[in-house]
Amino acid sequence: MEEAGETKKIMYVNRKAPYGTIYALEALEVVLIGAAFEQDVYMMFLDDGVFQLKKEQDTKALGVKNFSPTYRALEMYDVEKIYVEKESMEVRGLTADDLIIPVEVKSNEEVTKMMTEMDVLLNF
């Protein structure tokens, strides 16, 4: 295996809101397991994906597990490159203060550039 030990730039592209569908939760599970592979990992939140990071999620009445605190644990898994698109937040009336973890806010143009620099894009 000539490529063993190779490090790839992998971006997890999250575009879906939590709870309405399972994609956000299962995407997060990929990121946590994936951390063991020590790749150059980027988490990008676009469109409704930004709602995944909204503070004050309370799922008691819904009867499902609130997984939003898990985003705070990403740092312990050395997942530190976490980005949110500015335009996606603006359209939804959110600012970085509404989010459960500190993120880097990127413009659509910067998102485009970052995507082109990746080796692999995993879409959820």
Binding site: R15, L46, D47, N108, V111, T112, K113, M115, T116
Partner: peptide, 15 residues
């Protein structure tokens, strides 16, 4: 859904 418009907004030139 907005996928196509989002894609057209974000895709890089030459893609």
């Amino acid at each position: 859904r907005n996928s196509l418009e989002r894609c057209m907004r974000t895709c890089d030139k030459g893609s």
